[in-house]
Each structure stands twice: as C-alpha cells, then as structure tokens.
C-alpha cells in the first residue's frame, strides 16, 4: 500500500544543470502560450519555448512518472459519458435549486478506490468535482479513499447507488488511461460491498 517515491529519470526528459526538464510540460506550456497569442508563427513558438524553459528552470517540480496510456476507444467512451453526466447532473441540480419549499438531503459517502495510481486517483477526483451533485470533502491518500458529498442522496440506497457510480467512473477512467497493471488491479479487486 505504500507508494515508493520513484526517483529515476522520467521518460522524455533531459537534464539541464541540476534540473530535469520534462519535454511534455515544455510543449504544454508552449501550446498555452500560442493559444494566448491566438496565432501560430515561428516567433510565437520560439518565445513560448524560451519562456517555458525559464519557468521550468526557475520553478523546478519533482519529476512525475506519468504512467499513463491513452486508449482511444475507452477514452471516447469516458468523454461521452462525462458530457452526458455533466448535462443530466446539471439539470438535476437546477431542478433542486428551483424546488422551492424542499431542502435537499444529502450524504457523505466514503468510496475506497481500487486503483493505487496517483494520477488515476486525481483524475477521478477532478472529474467527480466537475460533475454537479458531488463535492470531494476529504481524500485519504493512504487508502485511496474519496469522501464525496452527494447532493440529493437522501437514503442509504441512494448513497449506495452514488458509490457504485463513483466506482463505474473510476473504471472508465482506468480503462481509458490506466496501465496494464492498473487494469489488472481493477479487475482483480472485488468492489467492497456495504459500508467501509
């Protein structure tokens, strides 16, 4: 259950002085730079690369082993479900906001995730947070447990359904981005029934 700190040289990085420069973050920052300028020219790209390099050198971050894959079809499934969830959940929250005279009851549920990957945990939490109706209240890093406040989950059955939704979301994310080990862990770990 412990996560050893991986201190080996990350892929796609080169060393400059004492700092590892990670090429993906360079590229990402240059893309943001180009989007801000709203045009794609040699000058913009070069200045973007220079600025990103300066940022990386001045504010070095510990190397992160991304450990991610991208499977196109599961990724599309994930995106599609995300879009429909976003819309249906927004409609639901709007309904609750306009249901005058009734205060929504909610639940705080603990969901132990099966994945042990930091990035998958983060992605699940971020997606949950963006979708209306669920707010992350607490994250237990040691056990990969998310505590989610679910708006409108008024009884244990609804809370249980919300818990299964979170697991389904985790599964979609793992199928889209996880490594083979993540997937094996997902399939090898039975979903814990009942409460914690």
């Amino acid at each position: 259950m412990t996560r050893p700190d991986v201190q080996r040289r990350p892929p796609l990085a080169f060393r400059l002085g004492r700092v590892y420069v990670q090429v993906p973050s360079l590229i990402a920052m240059t893309v943001v730079w180009a989007l801000l300028f709203g045009e794609l020219s040699v000058g913009v790209v070069l200045s973007g690369l220079l600025v990103s390099l300066a940022i990386v050198l001045i504010f070095p971050l510990p190397p992160v082993d991304p450990g991610l894959r991208l499977r196109p079809w599961p990724f599309l499934v994930f995106l599609g479900r995300f879009a429909t969830d976003l819309i249906t959940a927004s409609v639901k929250v709007v309904g609750q906001a306009f249901a005058f005279g009734r205060l929504p009851r909610s639940s705080v549920i603990g969901v132990p995730l099966r994945s042990r990957s930091d990035l998958l945990l983060t992605m699940t939490a971020v997606t949950l947070s963006v979708i209306p109706g669920s707010v992350i209240v607490e994250v237990r890093y040691a056990t990969s447990t998310l505590f989610v406040h679910v708006l409108g989950a008024a009884d244990p059955a609804a809370a249980e359904a919300a818990r299964r939704d979170v697991w389904a979301l985790e599964e979609r994310i793992t199928r889209a981005f996880g490594t083979r080990e993540d997937l094996a862990r997902l399939e090898g770990t039975p979903v814990a029934g009942g409460t914690l």
Partner: peptide, 27 residues
Amino acid sequence: GHIAGRVAYRTGRVRHDLIAVDDLQAE
C-alpha cells in the same frame, strides 16, 4: 471546491440533520 468542502466539514459548518449517510464522521 475540495478545499472549501474540507474546511467546511472539519469546522462543523454542516447541517448534520440534513445528511442521511455519513461515512466520514466515523472515520
């Protein structure tokens, strides 16, 4: 959202009478 929710819960600014199932309190 996470930071605000966490602070709200831990400082007790939660209407417990409106919460049906609470796994976090026991934890």
